[in-house]
């Protein structure tokens, strides 16, 4: 199964990357962990994200679209980085996540979320719905 692992932001990560010795150490530890993931055939993608001060939000309400500039409040609800892992099951994903060095100087959190797979839709995806989805995908491919 494929999972996305989010590295949740903290107030520290929202400040950007100060070139401290501590930061260098964290990068080294993370590099070693990434290497372990690669050698186990688990990591298939991953990257870090800049603080939300470099980001924008687009708010929807009916027909209106409002662009909101970062930074955004509530650091814990923001994402500082992610991986995509291919694992056998959630237990394995958890076991790997526990091995991750703490990605932040203070308390921090990883969140593991499985991707939807076709069989998850099961009977809910009737032939009519499947066909409609198919048409949508065709249109997307044609663009």
């Amino acid at each position: 199964m494929r999972v996305m692992v989010f590295v949740k932001a903290t107030e520290d990560s929202e400040k950007g990357l100060p070139p401290t010795a501590e930061m260098t150490e964290m990068f080294e530890a993370m590099g070693a962990f990434n290497e372990e993931l690669v050698k186990a055939g688990v990591m298939i993608d991953g990257d870090g994200l800049k603080p939300s001060s470099a980001g924008k939000r687009i708010a929807f309400d009916g027909a209106s679209r409002t662009v909101i500039d970062g930074p955004f409040a509530e650091a814990r609800e923001l994402v500082a980085g992610y991986w995509v892992w291919e694992v056998k099951d959630m237990d394995e994903a958890v076991a790997w996540a526990k091995r991750c060095p703490n990605p932040m100087p203070g308390p921090s959190e990883l969140e593991i979320r499985p991707f939807y797979e076709m069989e998850d839709f099961g009977d809910a995806l009737t032939p009519e719905l499947a066909e409609r989805e198919q048409k949508l995908r065709d249109q997307l491919a044609g663009q």
Binding site: A40, G41, E86
Partner: peptide, 14 residues
């Protein structure tokens, strides 16, 4: 296929 890909990824990692 996923098993073979995993083996291939391990080998490429090593």
């Amino acid at each position: 296929c996923a098993e073979a890909q995993r083996l291939g990824r391990i080998l490429a990692g090593l």
